[in-house]
């Protein structure tokens, strides 16, 4: 028998087959001659078998619905998902109807936003865009067709309304934010920052308005 017993971690690694070939061979040789280590290995394997045979358990029937219903309202900025704008050509009647729905949805969103100044700014901006018709129409059609389905189809798009919409390219805006210590990334042409809205606004205070939407998460 080798003079030194493997320690707990080595025995676990042996049982889990994490040892390199040479170390594995050494432990195996030791186990042939050492009853106490062999017993540890046997117990490690027996304990593992008992635990791994345990099934996953299901919540009592109906309990998930109760759990979800019990979630409180979360008072954060983003209450609704809005997909990235996409230039889609849609038939004129659909666009007209959808634009109407879109304005209604935006109005609802403004109400929900409470005292948030940025929201009204965004609403005004989109109201201007509404003159253009089709682009907004496409967006509104997405919404009208069911928020959940829309969200599944473009899940990584920024949601809600931007903190700011600034000049430059998304990459430049990310650099500006990161220079202020705010992690940020480009998501579908917009910038999503990991920070508080106030910090992001302060970091971009000198940046003129432009096409790059900046969101916070």
């Amino acid at each position: 028998m080798p003079e030194k017993h493997p320690d707990e971690l080595e025995l676990l690694a042996y049982v889990e087959e994490e040892l390199a070939a040479e170390a594995r061979r050494d432990v195996a040789e030791h186990l042939v001659a050492c009853r106490s280590c062999a017993e540890s290995v046997r117990r490690l394997e027996a304990g593992r078998s008992a635990l791994r045979a345990a099934p996953l358990l299901d919540l009592p029937v109906g309990r998930r619905e109760e759990l979800v219903a019990a979630l409180p309202d979360r008072r954060d900025r983003w209450r609704a998902f809005r997909p990235a704008r996409r230039a889609l050509v849609v038939a004129a009647p659909v666009a007209a109807a959808a634009a109407f729905v879109g304005v209604f949805v935006l109005a609802t969103q403004v109400d929900l936003g409470g005292g948030d100044d940025d929201v009204s700014g965004e609403a005004a901006q989109v109201a201007e865009d509404a003159g253009g018709g089709e682009e907004l129409g496409a967006t509104a059609t997405d919404r009208a067709s069911g928020g959940d389905a829309t969200a599944e189809s473009a899940p990584s798009a920024p949601a809600g309304v931007p903190v700011r919409s600034v000049a430059g390219t998304p990459a430049e805006v990310v650099r500006l934010l990161e220079a202020e210590g705010i992690p940020a990334e480009v998501v579908e042409g917009a910038v999503v920052a990991d920070g508080r809205a106030g910090e992001v606004e302060a970091a971009l205070a000198d940046q003129p308005d432009g096409p790059v939407g900046v969101y916070v998460r």
């Binding site: 707990e8 971690l9 676990l12 540890s40 117990r43 490690l44 027996a46 304990g47 008992a50």
Partner: peptide, 15 residues
């Protein structure tokens, strides 16, 4: 790892 070692071996002994 140490907790897994002890958890499993004690469990096996208890069982």
């Amino acid at each position: 790892k140490s907790r897994i070692f002890r958890g499993r071996t004690e469990l096996a002994a208890l069982l």
